[in-house]
Design a protein around this nucleic acid. Structure first.
Length: 905
RNA sequence: GCGCGCUUAGCUCAGCUGGUCCAGAGCACCUCGUUUACACCGAGGGGGUCGGGGGUUCGAAUCCCUCAGCGCGCACCA
């Protein structure tokens, strides 16, 4: 309290020390026993676990700031607030990183072997895995670090095992051979969600397949006389795996061919022509080549017609040995070129047209995904989806913004089974063992690793080599982090959680599946609110990404402007679920709102502390009789702000909450109240007035800092700790665990008076500015017919007018003669500034004339409305009365302006 | 193609159940300013036919229809 504060806020000086202190004192630690036995109401947010390899980016900055705002706010409201941190093992991503390291050494994972490879990944994770969690500390996240979890740690792995075993036993996990999404670079299966469609400019190749045997009458023919049928494809290389051609059963063009055969060019294999209503006769030629091993629709059709599959691609998407020698071993795209060329030479290309279609890409490495026939493990989703769907429909889980509800429902309504096996080494090994004993073939998924076959006792058992999708552990996150499958105190106290904050991109990947898992394994949704954030973009609207180099490093921002500036800027930029735009090339401009506001808070606080001095401060109650209009006004405004900020936070309207607190602090407290009380702080002011001002100031500053604390924890705490404590008040030891303010009563009188006074001051300032009255000079003011509120305000706050508008004399109802500037205030008050010599008569006449016309326009519109028969008869009485009042007031203002104008002659 | 959403000042967004909204904020812009908290500041100012058209209503930025543009989700017809 005694050491002087610098005139510029320096966040670096205070942030790290404060965070350390908060953490050390255990403020972030949530106590299960308080909930179970102490009657505390829990408020829990589980962090969307970042990849263990991740480095903090603005997306995290946005998400985690929002989470922390909610947590800090609820903690102040007295909730047992748990912000549960952790990371996930990110199977593909992490494995990719280590594989790249190996590649730099000229090795592959197969060279080092599975065990050594996994060991190496662990080593990497142990060294770098906590980076992002450290970074979350830097932006002020009040996580309960004693509960930090990792999806691949033993407890959470046990949860994964348990969930698998249960679903397996219920028949909800099965193995089968289907077309799945395959990444030829990652060499693993992907779920549908992991294959992201992207609009791609492709081509549609129309290829002639010659007819075998007798051609239908009138069929097109090749130069050699053979008839042919045209099929269209975007992927000519797959034709080598064609095993049929399909047409629509009612397509007359081809009815004669059904049951006949075509000759597959280049391969010279005969293909049956089958009829199936899957075929759309309108598209392309109406004849479809069928490649069951490389297209899901073809696969289904082939099953219906008992057509064999032929896989012509290797796992890394090269042509397999099952194709003609000329194409063997070629990369899929090279094969496409050569096949098209070869067909061209045979005159079998009818035409090639441009064709835009969406092509699935691997969400981890962006490689074009291959639909591939392979044996994988799946989760049967339909039964799991039902309660998750009901949860959205009955409001158990609410989505904010609400429009995501439909997206969620639609996905669940059309849910497809989930491919959960991954051909990776880093992850939870699938807990399935196959008995290899002759004639047994038992498949088992036990809770503990078996030594022998449960069916035949043979020890010739083998565990499935694959691992599970990372999301198969993430979907348990709210459960597993709290101890499930054990009925721990944490689980009992903190499940279900309250709010989940995440990006819409993982609504299906993660959010929907967590809800399914919550119901399946614990019988309840894992949270009640899902807040979906927007995306952080650059000024051109591009998503920030490492590869584009348009990212912003939150740590750099923290270093430059402080965590509070980062947090405030982010929160204030976050429209309701809208994207956030930031300029990576101009951090100064981007973060100026937060930086400037921090500095404003700092200086307002500094001013208050300097003026309060060492004199003891009284409680508000002790000075109640001495409160002046300005005091009552700011207290009323604090009440309004408190109510508003609270309401906005409840509705997840972060931008509005921030704006509301900002406007109160800057626009009301700093701009007006601090100015109003300056004279009262001086030594020559009346002691009672000074005491009232100081008590009010301390109270209001205390409230304002509390309202801002969830958004800007550091600066608010730093100032608050220095704020003097009124005698007899027992204060909390930190804002972190301080109480959230309750809105006090509003004071309509004080607000009306101050509104009138502020309007008057504003009007005088405007006139001064219009007439270029030198800033330093003081002017007299004449008021005629002041409105009651203004009259009252002036009786107590005239000196405010003098100070803030540079006025040296105030005359009421009299002396308003001569040349000067005029204005009419609300409530009909006439304002006159005698500016003889300064004033330009013509200019003033024009100015007043414009004002008069504006008022006249409004008046006419209002009178027209009132004059309308229909309005009078159909509009509600109170609206009509309001309009009448408005017309009266406008008429009065116009008349006064007319009178003034007449005065100019 | 189906579904959802958006289109308000130069930019990013508010505007909740139609009536002081002939529309607000922040940033940007212009003018003035060294009044002892802050120039990361203060004072003042300019700027919008609320995407186009139509309708409902006494009254629409706000409700309905339609068109256009953009975005998202889903499905992909090879």
């Amino acid at each position: 309290m005694s050491e002087p504060l610098s005139s510029q806020y320096d966040p670096a000086q205070i942030e790290a020390a404060l965070y350390h202190q908060w953490e050390e004192r255990g403020y972030f630690h949530a106590r299960a026993d308080q909930v179970l036995h102490g009657g505390a109401d829990p408020y829990v947010i589980v962090i969307p676990p970042p990849n263990v390899t991740a480095v903090l980016h603005m997306g995290h900055g946005l998400n985690n700031t929002i989470q922390d705002v909610l947590i800090r706010w609820r903690r102040m409201q007295g909730r047992e607030a748990l912000y549960l941190p952790g990371t996930d093992h990110a199977g593909i991503a992490t494995q990719n990183v280590v594989e790249r390291q190996l590649a730099a050494e000229g090795k592959t994972r197969y060279d080092v072997g599975r065990e050594a490879f996994v060991e190496r990944v662990w080593k990497f994770v142990d060294e770098t895995g906590s980076t992002i969690l450290e970074q979350l500390r830097a932006i002020g996240c009040s996580c309960d670090w004693t509960r930090t979890r990792f999806t691949l740690e033993p407890d959470l792995s046990r949860a994964v095992r348990e969930s698998f075993v249960r679903l397996f036993a219920k028949g909800l996990i099965y193995r089968g051979k289907y077309i799945i999404n395959w990444c030829p670079r990652c060499l693993t299966a992907l779920s549908d969600e992991e294959a992201e469609p992207a609009e791609t400019q492709g081509r549609l190749y129309h290829i002639r397949y010659p007819v075998v045997g007798r051609a239908p009458v009138g069929a097109a023919t090749l130069p050699d006389g053979r008839a042919y049928v045209v099929v269209a494809t975007t992927r000519p290389e797959t034709m080598l795996g064609d095993t049929a051609v399909a047409v629509h059963p009612e397509d007359e063009r081809y009815s004669a061919l059904i049951g006949g055969r075509l000759l597959l060019p280049l391969v010279e294999r005969e293909l049956p022509v089958v009829a199936d209503d899957y075929v759309d006769p309108e598209f392309g030629s109406g004849a479809v080549k069928i490649t069951p091993a490389h297209d899901p629709n073809d696969f289904e059709l082939a099953k219906r017609h008992d057509i064999p599959s032929l896989d012509v691609l290797t796992p890394d998407a090269h042509m397999s040995d099952d194709v003609p020698a000329a194409f063997r071993g070629l990369d899929r795209f090279e094969a496409r070129r050569r096949i098209v060329a070869a067909l061209g030479e045979l005159d079998l290309i009818e035409r090639i047209e441009d064709h835009t279609h969406s092509v699935p890409h691997c969400y981890r490495c962006d490689t074009i995904v291959e639909p591939r026939l392979s044996e994988q493990w799946f989760v049967r989703m339909k039964p799991l989806a039902e309660p998750a769907l009901a949860a959205a429909r009955n409001g158990r889980v609410r989505f904010t913004p609400d429009r995501w509800t439909k997206v969620y429902e639609h996905w669940l309504e059309n849910i497809r089974d989930w491919t959960i096996s991954r051909q990776l080494w880093w992850g939870h090994r699938i807990p399935v063992w196959y008995c290899r004993a002759d004639g047994c073939g038992h498949v088992m998924a036990p809770r503990t690793d078996p030594a022998a076959c449960a069916e035949c006792g043979s020890t010739a058992i083998e565990q499935d080599p694959d691992v599970l999708d990372t999301w198969f552990s993430s979907w348990l996150w709210p459960l597993s982090t709290l101890g499930w499958p054990d009925e721990t105190n944490d689980l009992r106290a903190f499940y279900p959680t309250q709010t989940l904050v995440t990006a819409p991109e993982i609504l299906f990947f993660w959010v929907a599946r967590m809800i399914m898992a919550g119901y399946e394994f614990k019988g309840d949704a894992p949270f009640s609110d899902v807040y979906l954030t927007g995306t952080v973009r650059d000024t051109q609207g591009r998503k920030m990404s490492k590869s584009l180099g348009n990212g912003i490093d939150p740590l750099e921002v923290v270093q430059l402007y402080g965590a509070d500036a980062l947090r405030y800027t982010v929160i204030a930029s976050v429209g309701f679920g809208t994207d956030v735009y930031m300029d990576p090339d101009n951090l100064d401009a981007t973060f100026s709102p937060g930086r400037n506001f921090s500095n404003k808070i700092w200086n307002a606080g500094r001013f208050a502390l300097m003026n309060i001095g060492d004199e003891p401060v009284l409680t508000l109650d002790a000075v109640r009789p001495d409160l002046e209009t300005a005091d009552r006004w700011i207290l009323s405004r604090l009440a309004a702000a408190t109510e508003d900020v609270t309401r906005q936070l409840e509705a997840f309207r972060f931008h509005e909450a921030a704006e509301s607190a900002y406007h109160f602090f800057w626009g009301e407290l700093a701009d007006w109240y601090l100015e109003l009380i300056k004279p009262r702080m001086q030594a020559d002011a009346a002691a009672s007035s000074r005491a009232a001002a100081k008590a009010t100031l301390v109270h209001v500053l205390d409230g304002a800092l509390r309202l801002l604390h969830p958004i800007m924890p550091y600066i608010t705490e730093a100032l608050w700790l220095r704020l003097p404590v009124p005698a007899g008040v027992d204060r909390e030891e930190s804002l972190v665990v301080g109480t959230w303010p309750a809105a006090g009563p509003r004071d309509e009188d004080a607000e009306a008076q101050m509104d009138a006074l502020m309007e008057l001051i504003g009007a005088v300032r405007t006139l001064r500015s219009e007439y270029n009255v030198p800033a330093g000079s003081h002017v007299p003011v004449h008021l005629t017919n002041p409105a009651p509120a203004l009259r009252e305000a002036l009786s107590v706050e005239e000196r405010a007018l003098r100070r803030m508008a540079r006025v040296n004399d105030v005359t009421v109802n009299g002396g308003a003669d001569g040349m000067g500037a005029h204005a009419v205030l609300r409530g009909g008050t006439d304002l006159f500034l005698p500016l003889a010599g300064v004033i330009d008569v013509e200019q003033e006449k024009q100015r007043l004339g414009r004002e008069r016309d504006r008022i006249e326009g409004q008046l006419r519109a209002t009178e027209a409305r009132l004059g309308s028969e229909k309005f009078a008869s159909r509009a509600p009485a109170d609206i009509v009365a309001k309009e009448r009042e408005k017309a009266d007031s406008l008429r009065d203002q116009r008349d006064r302006l007319d009178a003034k104008l007449r005065g100019f002659g």
